[in-house]
């Protein structure tokens, strides 16, 4: 007797139960502390910007999948959600909503779907959107609201410069770094750690981002290789520069805590799709991002270099994958 309709498949016959959703929503959970901090510091603006970005990303993903690519939409796999949140985290909290929508269109439409959707893109979609906005709307994208909590309103918030921009301006005009860091306009390291400073809405709270990092490590969503190698490179590189000339170059701690370094290293550079596959490759990728970030920050025209550094290294990922093989058995 041959039984009717037994299932047949090659081995293995069991599965770990891991899914795309578990990983994506895990990243989202890791982003919650940073989001809470940004709401505390930037008030309503943070909520409006994040919501707009998320809704716009989901909308564009749905529309493109349904009507352009004629696929079954998979907007709830969490990837568009992350793109939305990360895009929002990378813009000032007083950005007008229509600019965010344009950013979302670029992020999803050009950054992700034009390559074939989830898993096929070369560049981190949120960063593609962010850099597009930075180049297209330089004024709006670099007008940072001060951290005022709910006291500040969405559009007419008081604005100021980020510590990085302050430093860059000051060094250009000939002031020494120590002058700037000891001046009253500098927020201080403690505030930088907590996030009480000007900046994009998700990047300010270093501590909250580190909590997210710990959570993702605990859940085994990511490995330590990329963030740690970025941190280490930045510390070593800026440390050497600082030791050579403390007046011209800020200390490593300042670089670690300022700008989008934490957000970039923990959440953007570790994006599954655009980062290398082997551990060795991940470390090379992290070191590359670290070096490029510092080079752009210190020698480039922009005060902040994280997004460009990640995008540049994204382009190298296929090459790294081709030549960096995992440790083989024997």
């Amino acid at each position: 007797m041959i039984m009717n309709k037994l299932l047949i498949s090659p081995s293995p016959h069991v599965h770990s139960g891991d899914t795309i959703e578990k990983n994506m929503y895990g990243v989202l959970i890791a982003l919650i502390p940073a989001f809470i901090c940004s709401v505390l510091f930037f008030g309503l603006g943070a909520i409006i910007v994040t919501l707009t970005s998320v809704v716009a990303c989901l909308f564009f993903e749905y529309v493109i999948q349904k009507f352009l690519l004629k696929q079954t939409p998979t907007i709830f796999d969490g990837s568009a959600l992350i793109t939305g949140v990360l895009l929002a985290f990378n813009v000032p909290s007083n950005l007008p909503w229509w600019i965010i929508v344009i950013g979302a269109l670029v992020a999803i439409g050009i950054g992700k779907m034009s390559f074939g959707g989830l898993g096929c893109n070369i560049f981190n979609p949120a960063l593609v959107g962010r850099v597009f906005l930075l180049i297209s709307f330089p004024v709006q994208m670099t007008t940072w609201p001060l951290a005022q909590g709910f006291a500040g309103s969405y559009i007419d918030a008081q604005t100021g410069a980020t510590p990085l921009a302050l430093l860059k301006e000051a060094v250009k005009t000939g002031q020494s770094v120590s002058d700037v860091l000891s001046a009253e306009s500098f927020v201080g390291y403690k505030n930088m750690l907590l996030g009480n400073m000007g900046g994009s809405l998700g990047e300010v709270a270093a501590l909250a981002l580190l909590i997210g990092f710990a959570y993702m490590l605990f859940r085994k969503i990511i490995t330590w290789h990329i963030p740690v190698s970025i941190f280490a490179t930045v510390i070593v590189f800026t440390g050497i520069l600082h030791l050579c000339n403390p007046d011209a170059y800020a200390d490593p701690l300042f670089h670690l805590l300022s700008g989008g370094l934490m957000l970039g290293a923990i959440f953007m550079a570790t994006d599954y799709v655009t980062s290398p596959m082997s551990h060795k490759g991940m470390i090379i990728y992290g070191v590359g991002i670290g070096i490029l970030t510092v080079v752009i920050r210190i020698f480039g025209a922009y005060p902040e270099g994280m997004s460009f550094a990640i995008l540049i290294m994204n382009a190298f990922t296929p090459l790294i994958n081709r030549y960096c093989k995992p440790v083989r058995f024997a």
């Binding site: 989830l118 898993g119 799709v273 980062s275 596959m277 082997s278 995992p326 058995f329």
Partner: peptide
């Protein structure tokens, strides 16, 4: 018993980490 439908590779590199021979299953 049944397998779930196959979806896009998200290049998470979990297969690379799991491979006891140090190969790259996705590739």
């Amino acid at each position: 018993a049944s397998r779930k439908p196959m979806r896009n590779c998200i290049r998470c590199s979990k297969c690379v980490s799991a491979c006891p021979m140090g190969l790259e299953p996705y590739l």
